[in-house]
Lab assay of single mutants.
Amino acid sequence: TTIHVGDLTLKYDNPKKAYEIAKKLAKKYNLTVTIKNGKITVT
């Protein structure tokens, strides 16, 4: 599972963990989490 945050690309083997991290990042920086085709993007 890949999380895209701006220019950063973070890879995680565990999709659930990746989603949790994405949610935390989104909350911290007041951003939105988008999931599309298995890719998690924080914008």
Rank of each mutant, 00 (worst) to 15 (best):
N30A: 08
K16Q: 13
L25W: 06
K16A: 13
N14V: 05
T2P: 04
T34Q: 11
L10K: 04
G38A: 06
D13P: 09
G38T: 06
L31C: 08
K23F: 14
G38Q: 06
K27S: 08
K24L: 14
P15F: 15
D7M: 12
K36Q: 13
V42S: 01
L25H: 00
D13E: 08
A22S: 02
Y12D: 02
A22E: 00
L31T: 02
K23T: 11
T9R: 09
T9Y: 08
K17D: 09
A18Q: 01
T34F: 11
Y19V: 07
I21H: 06
N30F: 07
K23W: 13
K24E: 07
T41W: 15
K28A: 07
K39N: 13
K28L: 11
A18I: 04
K28F: 11
Y12W: 04
I21R: 04
G6M: 08
Y19A: 06
I35M: 09
T1G: 08
V33E: 00
T32Q: 10
L10E: 03
Y19C: 05
A18V: 04
G38D: 07
G6C: 14
K39F: 14
Y19D: 02
I35H: 04
D7C: 15
T2Y: 10
T1P: 06
T9P: 03
T2S: 08
N14C: 07
P15R: 08
H4D: 06
K11M: 15
I35L: 10
N14I: 07
L10C: 12
T43D: 05
L25S: 00
Y29M: 02
K11Q: 13
G6V: 06
A26K: 03
Y19N: 04
E20R: 13
T2Q: 07
K23A: 10
T43S: 13
T9A: 10
G38C: 04
I35Q: 04
D7W: 14
T41G: 02
I3K: 02
Y19T: 03
Y29N: 01
T1R: 06
K36N: 12
T2K: 05
V42W: 04
L8Y: 07
H4T: 15
A18E: 00
A22D: 00
L31S: 02
L8R: 07
D7Q: 14
I3H: 03
L25A: 01
P15G: 06
G38M: 05
L31F: 07
N37R: 07
N14L: 05
I3R: 02
K23D: 05
P15I: 13
H4N: 08
I35S: 05
T43P: 01
K24C: 14
G6L: 11
N37I: 09
K17W: 12
G6H: 09
D7F: 14
A18N: 01
K11F: 15
V5I: 15
D7K: 15
N14T: 12
K16I: 12
A26N: 01
T9I: 15
I21Y: 11
I40C: 04
L8H: 07
E20S: 12
K16P: 03
G38L: 05
K23P: 00
K11A: 11
N30E: 03
K17M: 14
T32M: 10
G6F: 12
L8C: 15
I35T: 05
T2N: 05
L10H: 03
A18Y: 02
N14F: 06
N14S: 13
Y12T: 06
Y19M: 14
K23G: 05
G38S: 08
D7R: 15
A26S: 05
L8V: 10
Y29D: 00
L31G: 05
D13H: 06
T34G: 04
T34M: 11
N14M: 05
V42E: 01
K24N: 07
T41S: 09
K17Q: 13
K28S: 04
H4K: 12
T1S: 10
V5A: 03
K23Q: 13
G38P: 01
N37A: 11
K36P: 01
Y19P: 00
K16L: 12
K27E: 09
A18M: 04
L10V: 07
N30C: 08
H4S: 11
I35D: 02
G38V: 02
E20F: 13
T41L: 14
G6Q: 04
H4C: 15
T43C: 09
I21T: 06
L10M: 06
I40V: 05
E20Q: 14
K23V: 13
A22L: 09
T9S: 09
I3C: 12
D7P: 10
Y12C: 14
G6E: 04
K23S: 08
K28R: 11
K27G: 04
I21G: 03
T41F: 15
K17P: 01
I21S: 04
P15N: 06
K39Y: 14
L8P: 02
E20T: 09
Y12E: 02
I3F: 03
Y12G: 03
T9H: 11
P15D: 07
E20M: 14
T2E: 10
K28M: 10
V42Y: 03
Y19H: 06
L10R: 04
I40T: 02
K16G: 09
K11C: 15
H4R: 13
T41N: 08
T41A: 07
E20W: 15
A26D: 00
A22I: 08
I35N: 04
D7Y: 12
N14H: 06
L25V: 05
G6R: 03
N30I: 03
V5M: 11
L25R: 01
L25Q: 01
T32G: 04
D13A: 10
I35F: 08
L8N: 03
K28P: 00
H4M: 12
D13T: 08
T41C: 10
T43W: 12
N37F: 12
N37V: 08
V33P: 00
N37Q: 09
K27P: 00
T9D: 07
N37K: 08
D13Y: 08
P15V: 12
A22Y: 05
D7L: 09
E20L: 13
T2R: 05
V42R: 00
Y12V: 10
Y19F: 12
L25Y: 03
N30P: 00
K24R: 13
Y29P: 00
K28Q: 07
T32A: 08
K17S: 07
T9E: 13
K11I: 15
T2A: 07
N37M: 09
I40G: 01
T32C: 10
I35K: 05
K36W: 08
K27T: 07
T1L: 12
L10S: 02
D13I: 07
K36V: 14
L31E: 00
K39L: 14
A18R: 01
A22T: 02
T1F: 13
P15K: 07
Y29Q: 00
T34V: 13
L25G: 00
K28G: 01
K27V: 08
K36T: 13
T1H: 08
T34E: 09
K16E: 12
N30S: 08
P15L: 14
I21Q: 06
K39A: 13
L25M: 07
D7T: 13
I21K: 05
T32V: 13
L10F: 10
I3M: 06
V5N: 02
A22R: 01
L8Q: 04
D7E: 12
K24W: 15
I40F: 05
K23Y: 13
N37P: 10
Y29W: 08
I21N: 04
D13R: 09
K39V: 15
L10I: 12
D13S: 09
K17A: 09
A26Y: 03
Y19R: 06
D13K: 10
L8M: 07
D7I: 12
K11S: 13
K39G: 07
P15T: 08
I21L: 09
K11D: 08
V33L: 14
T34K: 11
T1I: 14
T32Y: 07
A26C: 07
T43L: 12
K24I: 13
G6I: 08
V42K: 00
V42P: 00
T2C: 12
K39I: 15
H4P: 02
L31P: 00
Y19K: 07
V33F: 07
T9L: 13
T1M: 13
L31D: 00
I3N: 02
T41K: 06
E20G: 07
N30H: 10
K27Q: 10
K23I: 14
N30Y: 06
V33C: 05
L31V: 04
I3V: 13
G38Y: 07
P15C: 12
I40W: 04
T2H: 07
A18G: 03
A18K: 01
L8W: 10
D7S: 15
K11E: 12
Y29L: 04
L10Y: 06
E20H: 10
K11V: 15
K23L: 15
I40P: 00
D13W: 12
V33S: 00
V5Y: 09
A22N: 00
T9N: 07
I3E: 02
A26R: 05
V5C: 15
T34R: 10
I35E: 04
K28W: 10
K11R: 13
T41R: 07
Y12I: 09
K24G: 06
L25T: 01
Y29S: 01
T32P: 02
N37S: 09
L8S: 03
Y29G: 01
V33Y: 03
A22M: 07
A22P: 00
E20I: 13
A26L: 05
A26F: 06
T9V: 15
K16S: 10
